Amino acid sequence: MIGRLASFRIHDDRGRVVLRDGLIFCFFMRRSHGEIAAGVWRALQAYRRAIPSDALAWYVKPDGEWDPLEEEGWEFVREEILETPWPTGSEVRLQESPVEVCAYSMEYSGKWLDAPAWKGDGEAVSAVAFTLPTEYLQTHGPGQVRALALEMAAELPLSFGYVSLSFISPGGLRNPARKALQELCSRYPGLDVYNLRPTARSIGTRARGAYWHTFLGQPLLGQLGGMESLRERLSSSISLETLDGERLCLCLGEWPLLGDEQPDDETEPYRALARVLEPHLYEERHPWLIDEVFERRWLRRFLRSGEKSREVL
């Protein structure tokens, strides 16, 4: 399996990496910032224990400028997560480099859902994402990736979350990345494409898709009929693990899906889960991927036959 994992770097005209392969851990919570701040901080500490001590080296200040993430920077991050008062939202972005895409990053968008900006909006959520290099999976194996995901998920009252191989692009796609992405998507349909903040503004309690590790919480899990209903509708190749707080982790195989060339028995769990999730699948309110048609087809790629999905991506 190790030799089949993706490895690529897309550069801009100045030679900087704007898109690369990696792993993403992403969680959406229909909760206000004040309810989840301590859990987000603990999840960040779990992530930091799993990565090199200098992997997160830069942070974004309130004025939008990057600063080195030294002692003063970490104090700012702690205060931004744990002490941001109502009704101001909490926005944190940490990266390995301020000028190009590297393997390690953390993004958090925390909202006070009862604040004037969001009150009455049933679509906005708080969300957090962490990324790792693909090499982490190769070096430590899928068991350790799963253990880290479960450790972070234990701190977060998620409605939906996932772990997946991914096209890494903190803060959203840059133009050179968009140009390369259509071809890459056709080669690697198992990789996620994400943009945390716009998705968090409108995903509500819906699902974003079927992923290697898919986390379901309330109210989404209840809308799907609960664990027993899912067990009856999904094949035995998908493992289901109950978590505290009426939540569930579904694992779609020992290793994550990569490309369309993998055997049907490796792609079928993704298609089976996508069919179950279909009534509750999310569609981006403001398309940001390539265009609206491509984006909708990408998000629903596991609902199409293998031949058809190759045609449209």
Rank of each mutant, 00 (worst) to 15 (best):
A6S: 02
S7Y: 13
I10G: 01
I10S: 03
D13G: 12
R14K: 07
R16I: 05
L19R: 12
R20M: 01
R20F: 05
F28C: 00
H33K: 15
A38N: 13
V40C: 11
V40Y: 05
R42Y: 05
Q45F: 03
Y47I: 10
S53Y: 01
G64V: 08
E71K: 06
E72A: 12
R78W: 13
E80P: 03
I81C: 04
P87T: 12
S90Y: 08
L94K: 07
V99M: 09
A103D: 15
A103Y: 02
L113M: 09
K119H: 10
G120M: 04
E123P: 02
S126I: 04
A127I: 03
L132W: 11
G141V: 03
A147K: 10
L158I: 11
S164Q: 07
S164I: 00
S166C: 13
F167T: 06
I168H: 07
N175Q: 15
A177C: 15
K179G: 11
R187P: 10
N195H: 11
A200G: 14
I203E: 01
G204N: 01
T205E: 10
T205R: 00
R208M: 14
A210F: 07
H213R: 09
F215E: 05
L216T: 06
L220S: 04
L221D: 03
Q223F: 03
G225W: 06
G226K: 09
G226Q: 05
L230C: 10
R231G: 08
R233V: 00
S237H: 02
T242V: 11
L243R: 12
G245W: 00
W255C: 01
P256N: 01
L257M: 11
G259Y: 13
D260F: 05
E261S: 13
P269E: 05
R271M: 10
A272C: 10
L273V: 07
L273P: 01
V276P: 08
L277C: 08
H280Y: 09
E283G: 09
R285C: 00
E292H: 07
R300F: 00
R301W: 15
S305T: 15
G306T: 14
K308M: 14
